[in-house]
Simulated scan of single mutants.
Amino acid sequence: MRLLPEDLGRWLRFSAASLLLPLSWNYKTFQGLGCLWLLRGQLRYPAAVQQKEPLQSFAGYFNTNVFLAPAVLAAAVRLYEERLSGQSTLMAPEAFLRAVMAPVAAVGDALFWGGLRPLVFCAALLLAWLGWPGWPLVVLAGFILPTLLVRLLGSLQGYGRGHQVVMLLQHLRLADLAIRCKQATLVLLGAGCALLLHQLELANGLLIWLVPLLFAALIPLLALVLRRGISLVLLWWLALLLLILFLPEAVPPLSQWGN
């Protein structure tokens, strides 16, 4: 289907509305209500259609990656409008959503939550520790703006390609990109740890050799705590609090190194 100039505004509004999709989450249908709300606001009924079809079939279970959701939902809109206009479609829009939501969720979560976000935030944290005042721009340019662009381009491609948007996602090899992001994150973490341990050695002498022993003791303790049902998010917040309280005293700023 050829996209018209006015479609840009239509799908720009759709992409903005998709930011509210996580707010519809519940334990029964997950994102089902949000899916129904987004589709209801985007469907265009042909003039020949006198009786509008009910959309309750879209209110069931739906759960996928929030950044790639506009692509699959826009493709479902395309399939639904083709069915209303009497065209033959490869599969029903409801069946399409049920078929693609799990694979798209897997690759999207691996890329954005497991790959891109740790990479960008580790880079921002390292730059902040080195004293660069523009580190928030790294988060803005590296994660927030790209995900907004993915929402918009995904909705345009989804509506333009219909069910074939799945082939586009496969062609982009997002899973491989997620692996590259994770590898780059490990490189950044390694560089940051090397700088930190080097400065601790300069500041505390032989105490640096206690750090590997401390980590060796903390790993089984952490595993035991997690098996007891303690929230991993809570542990992350506690670790961040400890870094804020003790790291500035143990490690001087980069500008003071060598003094």
Rank of each mutant, 00 (worst) to 15 (best):
L97F: 09
L97K: 07
L97Q: 08
A99G: 04
V100F: 04
M101V: 06
P103R: 02
P103I: 06
A105P: 14
A105Q: 08
A106T: 13
A106Q: 07
V107N: 02
V107C: 07
V107E: 00
G108N: 02
G108R: 01
D109T: 12
D109G: 12
L111Q: 04
L111K: 04
W113S: 07
W113V: 11
W113A: 09
G114V: 07
G114T: 06
G114F: 08
R117T: 09
P118I: 06
P118S: 08
P118A: 06
L119R: 02
V120Q: 01
V120D: 00
F121R: 09
C122N: 09
A123M: 13
A123W: 12
A123P: 09
A124R: 05
L125E: 14
L127I: 11
L127D: 02
A128K: 12
A128F: 05
A128V: 05
A128H: 10
W129E: 15
L130F: 13
L130R: 15
L130P: 06
L130H: 14
G131N: 09
W132F: 15
W132Y: 14
W132M: 14
G134F: 06
W135L: 12
W135P: 03
P136L: 15
P136M: 14
P136Q: 14
L137Y: 09
L137M: 10
V138P: 01
V139H: 02
V139D: 03
A141R: 07
G142A: 08
F143G: 01
F143N: 09
L145T: 10
P146F: 11
P146D: 12
T147Q: 10
L149Q: 11
L149Y: 07
V150N: 00
V150L: 13
L152F: 14
L153F: 14
G154C: 07
S155E: 00
S155H: 02
L156K: 04
L156W: 02
G158N: 01
Y159P: 01
G160V: 00
G160T: 00
R161V: 00
R161H: 10
R161W: 08
G162H: 02
G162W: 01
Q164V: 04
V166F: 08
M167K: 11
L168C: 05
L168S: 10
Q170W: 05
Q170M: 01
Q170C: 05
H171K: 10
R173C: 04
L174H: 05
A175L: 07
A175D: 10
